[in-house]
Structures are given as C-alpha cells and as structure tokens.
C-alpha cells in the first residue's frame, strides 16, 4: 500500500464514490419523499376502494360469515398450527436431502471427460423429466403407485413418499441453480488449482464449489420459498398437513375461515424468507460493485 500513499484500495473506492453521490442524493431527497407519500396515499385509496366495493356488495354478509368467522378462526388455530408442524418437518427433511442430491447431480453434470458420459446422460435425463412433469402428478404416482405394488418391506407411510416426491421434484430445479453457480466460476480458477497439482476433484471441492455455492445462495432461498408452499401438495396422498387439516375443519363447520388461517400462517412464514433473500441479493450486488475496480 506504500505506492498508494497510505490509502488502501477500499479507501480509494470510497473517496472515488463520494463526490458523485452527495449532490445526487441532496437533489433527489425532497422529491423522493413526496413520491413516496403519493404512492403510499394512492395505494391506501386504491385498496380502500376495493374494500368498500366488497363490503357493499350484495353477497358480503354471506361471505363475511363463511370467510371471516372470528370464533371459528380462534377455535381452528390450534389444529391448524399442529398440522403445520407436519409441513415444517416435511420442509426440513426434504430440503436437507435436496441440497445434497442436487449438488451431486450438478457436479456429475459439470464433470468433463468421456468416462462419465453415461452418468452425465442419466443426470441430464433426470433433470429434464422431473422439470417437465407437474409436481402433483409425481406426488400421485409415487404416493399411490409404489405402495400399491405391495412389496414386503416397502414403506406405506404417505409422509415417506411425500418427502421422496418433493426431493425428486425440487432437486431437479436446485441442481440447475448449483450448475449455474459452478459455470459462473471462471475457468482460470480451476486452471490455477490444477496448475498447483490439485486433482480435478480437489479443484472442484476446495476452489470452485465454495465460490459457486456462495453465489447461488439467493436463488437457492428462492427455491426454498417455493418448496415451503408446495408442501401442501402432498395433502393429495393423504398426509394430514395444514391444507388437509383446514379442509377437514372447513367440512366440519361448512365455513372457509380455516383457509384464511392457513393463508395467514404461510404469509407469516414465507415473507421473512423473501425479505432475507432480497437482502442477500442486494448485499451481494453492493459487494460486487465494491470489488470491481
């Protein structure tokens, strides 16, 4: 740093940015405040108007009774919360398996060399098939088909098949995310590692994968959010999770309020994860901007 007169590259970066930033923010801040206020007010007015239309519609009293029953909401919450625990378990077990299986598939697809061609072909076929099929179909086929074979020792628990189906569906997507990350690491990194005598596997393990995984954390979280919601699909094969539980409660009371309770649970669970993802993305962008000199 002696050549730079005691200033680190980072200091220079900061200095270089300051003059450009200040006037811009000074000029725009009163305008930005007014825009925010206008946007806020118009949003409230718009949704207020929609609410007014709904509340004054001829069918509103009926809808209010069947969707917004406060007593039933309170009464159904314990059952719904307990059923949601099944979704949480599904999510964590499947997610762990997905992260591992998808990584293996991504690595297999990224490994060059003629020896592994059949393996690459299989991995590619798997990804293509499982991304092409609707998830519900896979859940149906696995959840009803395999136990239907009546083979001794094959599990009959629908939870087991729910985990397998979700893992197979999501690993296909997540392996593509990993692969994009692996491809984004410049080949010169691998060349540098190989030039030091590291084997192909060591270069992947110590140099390429750590950089690849770090880069794809935001899109991985995006897929987690999708998985969180798709856990309700396994209700079709008889797993009593939150959606099936709300159907049961709905059927018992002829009232749709449990669905709203379920929706509220998902909002509370998913929005924080979405915010976290956005925050990570913007942090990465800031870092990349600071790193580009």
């Amino acid at each position: 740093m002696t050549a730079l007169g005691g200033l680190g590259p980072h200091d220079q970066e900061v200095l270089a940015r300051l003059p450009g930033r200040r006037p811009r923010s000074r000029r725009s801040s009163p305008g930005a405040l007014r825009s925010t206020a206008v946007a806020f007010a118009s949003t409230i007015a718009f949704f207020g108007f929609l609410t007014w239309i709904a509340v004054n519609s001829p069918g509103w009293p009926l809808v209010q009774r069947s969707f917004f029953n406060g007593d039933l909401l309170v009464a159904s919450l314990p059952d719904i919360a307990a059923a949601f625990w099944v979704n949480v378990q599904l999510f964590f077990v499947a997610e762990t398996l997905i992260l591992a299986l998808a990584l293996v598939i991504a690595v297999l697809r990224s490994t060059p060399g003629p020896v592994l061609f059949p393996v690459r072909l299989l991995a590619t076929a798997y990804v293509d098939v499982f991304r092409a099929l609707p998830g519900v179909l896979i859940i149906y086929i696995l959840g009803f088909g395999i136990p239907g074979l009546n083979i001794d020792g094959v599990p009959t628990d629908p939870f087991f098949y729910a985990v397998i189906a979700l893992t197979l569906i999501y690993s296909a997507y997540v392996s593509e995310v990993y692969r994009a990350g692996i491809d984004s690491v410049h080949p010169s990194q691998s060349a540098a590692a190989r030039s030091l005598g590291l084997s192909q596997w060591q270069a992947l393990r110590y140099v390429v994968l750590p950089q690849a995984v770090r880069r794809v954390i935001p899109p991985l979280l995006n897929d987690f959010i999708g998985l969180q919601k798709d856990t309700v699909l396994v209700s079709y094969i008889g797993v009593v999770e939150i959606f099936r539980q709300s159907q049961i409660t709905e059927a018992a009371h002829f009232n749709f309020t449990p669905y709203l309770a379920t929706a509220a649970v998902f909002l509370v669970m998913t929005i924080p994860l979405a915010r976290l993802t956005d925050w990570l993305v913007s942090r990465d962008r800031r870092r990349a901007a600071a790193g580009a000199r």
């Binding site: 010169s188 990194q189 030091l196």
Partner: peptide
C-alpha cells in the same frame, strides 16, 4: 504439475 509452477497474467488467486 507439482514439479512445475506457473504464475498467470491475471494472478488467479482464490478470492474466497
């Protein structure tokens, strides 16, 4: 490769 070192134009250090 263990016996032959190479240094590249673009450094190629491991950034992580």
């Amino acid at each position: 490769r263990r016996r032959i070192g190479i240094v590249f134009q673009a450094f190629n250090l491991f950034p992580h």
